[in-house]
């Protein structure tokens, strides 16, 4: 028996934890997602106090601590506020499959909303073809393919006829 406290072998055990969950979307998110799925529309809620339009809709305006109950329809067009060209094969946590790099994704503020939404952008990974401030539109899956989550959005696509600002 080795009496000295010397490490002779380091043991590391691989393990995977796979835990099933059942997640309730709640009243506000469910209405948002069913509008998206059934009618192809984006809806937000407007704060009765500060008039801020929030998407996705939520029960309370965090800034004002008041209940949101006015629903407003938003445009399917908006403006890019930040983007990236991703060179890493990011795993989609909802499918376990990687998004194939390089790909472009970004954060878009839909017209009429104070919030932004993040998704893939259908442009080549080229800095001449994507910029902050670019006008975008949402491209949705066909009605029968939509399931009621953000994967109902295929991607954003630039509105035609735009030139990169110098």
């Amino acid at each position: 028996m080795n009496q000295k406290n010397t490490v002779t072998e380091q043991i590391c055990v691989p393990m995977t934890v796979d835990v099933p969950y059942r997640f309730a979307a709640g009243k506000y998110m469910a209405r948002f997602l069913t509008e998206l799925r059934d009618n192809g529309r984006f809806v937000g809620v407007k704060c009765p106090s500060c008039n801020r339009v929030q998407m996705p809709p939520r029960v309370v305006c965090a800034a004002c601590h008041v209940k949101n109950d006015e629903w407003v329809e938003l445009s399917s067009e908006g403006t890019m506020v930040g983007f990236t060209i991703m060179y890493l094969p990011l795993t989609d946590p909802t499918t376990g499959k990687p998004h194939e790099p390089p790909f472009v994704y970004g954060s878009v503020r839909l017209d009429g909303s104070d919030s932004t939404v993040e998704h893939m952008v259908n442009v080549e990974p080229d800095l001449d073809k994507i910029w902050v401030g670019m006008r975008m539109k949402v491209v949705l899956r066909d009605r029968e393919e939509r399931i009621g989550d953000l994967s109902d959005i295929i991607h954003f696509e630039p509105l035609p006829g735009q030139k990169r600002p110098q």
């Binding site: 997640f23 990236t84 890493l88 946590p93 994704y105 970004g106 954060s107 993040e118 989550d149």
Partner: peptide, 20 residues
């Protein structure tokens, strides 16, 4: 899970958008 998770997975994308 229903809003943004499919694109989640690394802080790097978040900071990249901050950068642009």
């Amino acid at each position: 899970p229903l809003y943004g998770r499919s694109m989640a997975g690394a802080a790097v994308g978040y900071f990249a958008m901050m950068g642009t």
